[in-house]
Nucleic acid binder design. Structure first.
Lengths: 198, 198, 198, 198
DNA sequence: CATGAATGAGTCTTCATTCAT
DNA sequence: CATGAATGAAGACTCATTCAT
């Protein structure tokens, strides 16, 4: 419990520091200091600095995916699911600001990590989208010619770019709900058979 | 001419190395070696390592924007313009693989550079999209309730994610033209008044 | 204790290396090696190479000044004090050969350090001389027209030049005691009312 | 003539830059720039950076020694000669400020140069003093127990320290003539048989 | 002779990681 | 388990010197 606590404190501190400084400009010393542990202690829980980053990602993604799936189970309509996905994704960015920044800026983006990324969590997350689209297609709501494997990336990309803007810009013109609405409007209409359905 | 050549060689080498290793894992020594110049020579043309990265970005973006605008002038219909934008963007990713990787992976994404980025080229590029949308709205082709400032990021995000996937994955399931078609299909339908227009 | 030991070892090694090679031709690597610590360790105790030099100076001067004052307290006659000052100064040069060389050659003399020198230790040291002269003047032993602020520099300069010669030359013609005698003879006679008093 | 001019310009520029920045912090590029020649040109006239410094010293010393000897020939009395020497030395410091700074700060003091100094000019200069003293002793004016070889360093050291102070301090309390008077007063009285002779 | 672009050896400093306590 | 002092490898950058023109 106490150990777990220490581990968590390290991860949290790392997320904060990575978010503010970026991975390469973050110092183990600062993370240790913020987590109130000795530098060496970090190496009792993690192999190296890299593992800190990937662990934050994998662990947080597991939570996010679980939450997302639970949330999506509450609605049945694929369009509503897509809408919910969009809303939840953006809401998470807002709620978990620091962790979002790390993903946004360091992990999704750092060469080293992207090329070496062996986890399945990111794929799992994207596949939530394609599953919804497939179901929608089976139900005759979404156009059959849409390729779920591409569409999932289109939606994720749109969300991601908006998140990126959200995370980096200090003066934001549009609220997250307006933005979510806008993305939903365009994407769902874009993939739907009946464009007026939304 | 010779100088320019040397400068270009350095930039090209830097783009290659940054693309393969990432900014922080790239070594000036390797760039110099690849450019066939001495390490010190790099500092005759650029202030420091950072400037190499931003120069690559700004310089290349200027070319891309110019090319894109010229290309877009060839068509009049906003839908065609959007379609062309999508095609050209993806084609460029393919043509300028190494530079694309740098943008994709280091610049757009590195904290330091994003937060310090003072250039206008990226905004200029995004605004090409919003201009097209605005024109389309005036002509009554695109839905009036679409917010160009958000829509531009949605399209760019979609393109960017696809590019990212394209750049990073080694085994690609879909051709660029299929992908371009898919994005155009969804996005244009998403923002159009007449959804069957595409 | 151990830390202090390490710090001292570094200072001692630095003094040795600076003395032999001069500040700019000294390498941190060599100092670390001589102190039997890793290069990085030096930076745990000192901000940078410059600080090593100034620390050596300030620290050593504090000791020298204290010792000198204690020694001078043992005699009362201003002439004897001057004589003692001269003897002690030269003796110190001989005893603390390496540190003396650093002062003689690098610190007192390096542009950067002299111009940036903010410490008071050097002034404190010089003022020991002027105080003695002032007292001698009040007692009617030294000529009233002597300006202590100049005279202190005359004596220090004489001592310093002799020290410099002493430090740099390998074959010395005169012993330190002979030299001390000579300086005392000239200087005290030079400032005394009664020239035959010495 | 033109060549000589170029050589002189380089030496003058070097003296200026060395004086302001110190030898190790001076850049060949800056010297070249100030001399209005290309960097490479400097190496047509001088072997390396070191030689620039020693040449400045030797060349300037030759002039100074010649001037000094000429000046001293105008008076006969050893005491007057000493007085003149002091006055001229300090006046030169004032007249040739930049060159004086170089000597004061870099050359006399830099380990490398002092230890490697093979020239005779410095010794020649010092020996002017000891010669005067010897003559004074023969004439029965100066005390026979004074050792000219030490006394010359005492006087030079006094002058040098005063010069050093003069060169480095920005706010000077005493004029050069007052200072010269003071040194002469103390030194001549210090070495004279008849202390009231000055 | 003159140039100045190019060179590349050289070094301070940083910081992830280790390990004795 | 925890510590944090110590390590030392690694790399950006500088600048005296060279050499093709």
């Amino acid at each position: 419990m106490d150990n777990n606590d220490k581990r968590e404190r390290i991860l949290k501190a790392a997320a904060q520091v990575f978010a503010r400084k970026g991975f390469y400009n973050s110092r183990i010393a600062e993370i240790a200091n913020k987590a109130n542990v000795a530098e060496g202690t970090i190496y009792l829980y993690f192999t190296n600095k890299d593992e800190l980053l990937t662990t934050i990602f994998e662990q947080e993604m597991a939570v996010v995916i679980a939450e997302m799936k639970e949330e999506l189970n509450k609605v049945d309509d694929p369009k509503d699911k897509i809408k919910k996905f969009i809303e939840r994704h953006l809401a998470l960015i807002d709620e978990k600001r620091e962790i979002a920044e790390v993903f946004q800026i360091e992990l999704r983006q750092s060469h080293k990590f992207m090329k070496e990324y062996k986890g399945t969590k990111f794929r799992d997350y994207l596949n939530i989208i394609s599953s919804i689209i497939s179901i929608g297609q089976k139900r005759g709501m979404f156009r059959a010619d849409i390729i779920p494997g591409i569409a999932k990336r289109i939606l994720f990309g749109a969300l991601d770019e908006i998140s990126n803007y959200w995370v980096l810009s200090t003066t934001r013109q549009f609220s997250l709900s307006v933005t979510a609405e806008e993305i939903a409007k365009i994407f769902i209409r874009g993939i739907s058979l009946d464009p007026n359905s939304i």
